[in-house]
Each structure stands twice: as structure tokens, then as C-alpha cells.
Write a protein that binds this DNA or RNA. Structure first.
Lengths: 102, 102
DNA sequence: ATCATACTTAGACATATGCCTAAGTAAAAG
DNA sequence: CTTTTACTTAGGCATATGTCTAAGTATGAT
């Protein structure tokens, strides 16, 4: 079931950027507007928006417009796709280890 | 401790490619030579080698030359960096949820 | 009605990425 | 000792990525 999981491509790619991981860490602490998210990153707004777009495409965050500000938050179960894939691989590997130890 | 973890950049980036995830899935089942790894991927050898190099740089796999063949295997605790970062974020988020539910 | 704020769109640009072919090199087989 | 085999190196090429500036648009404040 995880063999050709194309969903994980943009997902892990999104996690591969430090700016985006910092955004996620910030959002783990609660909702934030785009400009709040932008502040710690000495970066032009459109550049930051690109990151947000990738996070949203990857289903790591959601966002909605409230007046002229956009509020972002972590998607529900944002991290489970990664955790599932990873623990699946671990399981296979550990099963293998059990055999090898005989 | 995970705030500016540059190690995770090449790490997650490596996971963001389907070819490389398939290689990891294969290696979870045990060691393999480069050509064994190459077989299921209709891809020129040098292209595949690039993927292996990225996986090795990311500390997801190790490899050693045995005669003229190179044997690859999963790095020890290959997946824990990712699992640690992910569960850290989950923890922060869940802590937050506890407050919000009051 | 005017102005400032908070994005948003459009376009440019340098570098990175994923792929290829062609030409090595080194070990094993015949 | 010649030929295969199994990588490896070098170089090229198209597209993707991460960044920017400049010019919108829409909403809130005065």
C-alpha cells in the first residue's frame, strides 16, 4: 500500500526545507497569520508564500482567509503519513533482523 | 535542539523521491548490490548511483565495495532522525490541544 | 473617500535536481 | 591476456526550486 505512494513525494519534499520545518514547528504551537509566520524569516513575502503553498499542497497545513489576513494551522494528523511510512519500513527491517539473529 | 537541524535537510529531501523510497523499501528487506537495486528501475546506472549517493549523504544507507560490486544496506537507526523530529512536533501540538480543550 | 495593511500575482533569475550518453577503471571469468 | 561485468567519472540538458522585485487587489482604519 505504500509502494507507489505519490502523495509522499511533495510531503517529504516539503519537510526537506528548513524554512518550512520552522514554519511547522511554529504552527505546532498554534495558529498564525502569514505575516506572523513571516517575521522570523528574513524573506520577502512572496517567497514565504511559496513555502506555505507547498506545505498546503503537501497536506501539512491548512489555511483560510479571514478578512485581509490568512490564518494557517497544522492540518489534522499532519504528521501521520510520514510516521506510518517510516514505521512500516522499520517494522520490515526489524522483522528481518529477527531472522538474521538465528 | 531540532531548531536549526541542517542534517534533516538532505535527509527529508532524500525521502521526497519515489525512486529513493523504493530503494529504501528494498533495503529494509536486506542488503543488495547496486545492480540488484537498479533492476526494478528502468534507469541508467549513473542516474541510480546519484540516488544512492544522496541516500548515503543523508545517512539513510551505507555501502562498501566488495570486489567489483558495491553492497548497500540501511544505515543503523536509519529512520530515527525523522521519527524523532516528527514525534517532537506531534508532542508539542498535542500538548497545545490539551490546553485548548479546557 | 483616502490611505495603510496584508496578502497576491507576475515575471525574472541563479542554482539544484533528475535524467541521459559516452568514456573511463578495476576485478573476475574464460 | 583478453573480455565481461560492475560500477564510476565527466559532461550535458530540461525542468524544478527558492529567491527576488514590482505591481496588483481587497479589507480595515481615519
Amino acid at each position: 500500500m505504500s509502494k507507489y505512494d505519490t502523495v509522499l513525494d511533495p510531503y517529504f519534499a516539503a519537510l526537506g526545507d528548513p524554512t518550512r520545518r520552522m514554519i511547522l514547528q511554529r504552527l505546532a504551537r498554534g495558529k498564525a497569520s502569514v505575516s506572523e509566520l513571516a517575521k522570523p524569516h528574513n524573506m520577502a513575502m512572496p517567497s514565504l508564500m511559496e513555502h506555505l503553498k507547498k506545505l498546503e499542497t503537501a497536506n501539512l497545513i491548512t489555511s483560510k482567509k479571514e478578512g485581509r489576513t490568512r490564518i494557517c494551522e497544522l492540518a489534522p494528523k499532519a504528521f501521520t503519513p510520514a510516521q506510518n511510512w517510516l514505521s512500516e519500513q522499520c517494522a520490515i527491517w526489524e522483522e528481518r533482523q529477527a531472522y538474521d539473529d538465528l
